[in-house]
């Protein structure tokens, strides 16, 4: 059953990717890319990677599509006819693809329990992490405890990317006047958005603090909370949204999240453990691990929320500016 669904979904993905190659309308390309992310998230659910599917659905399908549409609004939606010969790229792709397929023949068969990938560190994570960390969700245990240093690096990368986007595009100026938006006439939309936004924020909090027990965690919660504000900005206009969540406040938040994360590491340092060793945070190691994971997931959530929303503000500010001119 799993294999069959997998095959059907992969087939759909392949057709979508092929269609993207031949489309000239960039708007359609972006729509199909959103579809591609949705389908790949479904494949992740099917292959048991629920946390990954969660992230891909929220980040890949949601934020990416919104940002790409924002870029298209600024750069135009038609791709110009291209007079390159398609022959050389095609040749390169076919040769590379053939080499890769030849390479896959040496790989262990798909899904076999004796594969080398499942032999070394994975059994330890699966058997020991519920006892050592005390959390049912192994992905959270590995992410926030065993590989916490790695995750700190990734949080820093998200923070750096937000700084990069803001230095390229700039933040919206607070106190701008709302331009008359066409969505003003969508009364139904405005009422429903008012109902949906609080539900979304509530759901983000649930994902943030339930991530230890089910799929979810700081990364996903941050993105969902950002999505709520993005929805607000899309329906009611950017100036109102910047009034609610100020750009300067976001800059502070983004840095604060990384600081909370690194600060937890330094605290464990001073309490006599290694960097990011949560065992020393409480007298009982399992309780210490729990405290550490909740704190750093909170830090991740804050940084991701601020970074994603800041990136959206950057693009939206550019779009508003060109619309006024």
């Amino acid at each position: 059953m799993v294999e069959l669904i997998d095959l059907v979904l992969l087939g759909m993905l392949a057709i979508t990717a092929l269609r993207v190659i031949f489309l000239k309308d960039l708007f359609a390309v972006v729509m199909l890319f959103g579809l591609y992310s949705f389908l790949s998230a479904l494949i992740f659910v099917n292959l048991d990677a629920v946390d990954v599917a969660f992230t891909e659905a929220a980040v890949g399908a949601g934020i990416s599509t919104v940002l790409m549409l924002g870029t298209l609004a600024l750069t135009g939606r038609k791709e110009k006819a291209n007079n390159h010969t398609a022959l050389l790229p095609l040749l390169v792709v076919i040769i590379t693809g053939a080499a890769l397929i030849y390479g896959t023949l040496d790989m262990p068969p798909f899904g076999h329990p004796d594969n080398p990938a499942h032999q070394h560190v994975a059994p330890r994570y699966i058997e020991e992490s519920p006892k050592e960390i005390g959390l049912p969700n192994m992905v959270t245990s590995v992410l926030a405890s065993y590989r916490a240093f790695d995750t700190l690096g990734e949080t820093a990368v998200v923070f750096a990317a937000a700084i990069g986007v803001l230095s390229l595009l700039g933040m919206p100026k607070p106190g701008g006047v709302a331009i008359d938006s066409g969505l003003k006439s969508h009364l139904v939309l405005r009422v429903v958005a008012k109902l949906v936004i609080p539900m979304t924020i509530l759901f983000a909090l649930y994902v943030q603090f339930h991530g230890d027990y089910g799929p979810g965690g700081g990364f996903q919660a941050g993105v969902i909370a950002a999505a709520a504000v993005i929805l607000y900005a899309l329906v009611f206009g950017l100036p109102l949204a910047t009034h609610v969540v100020r750009p300067n406040f976001l800059k502070v938040l983004a840095a604060l999240g990384v600081l909370i994360y690194a600060g937890t590491g330094v605290t464990s340092f001073f309490l006599g453990g290694n960097f990011l060793d949560y065992n020393v945070l409480a007298s009982d190691p399992v309780v210490g691990q729990h405290i550490g994971i909740i704190v750093i997931e909170f830090g991740i959530g804050i940084t991701v929320f601020a970074a994603m929303l800041g990136i959206f503000y950057g693009f939206a500010a550019q779009a508003e500016r060109t619309n006024i001119q």
Partner: peptide, 26 residues
């Protein structure tokens, strides 16, 4: 259970991937 390690690696890679995409789009 399936192997949790690739899930962890890819989960963070997705978020970082979107962040870098945003820089590219900017």
């Amino acid at each position: 259970y399936s192997n949790p390690l690739p899930h962890v690696l890819i989960l963070t890679a997705i978020v970082v991937g979107v962040a870098t995409t945003a820089v590219g789009l900017a």
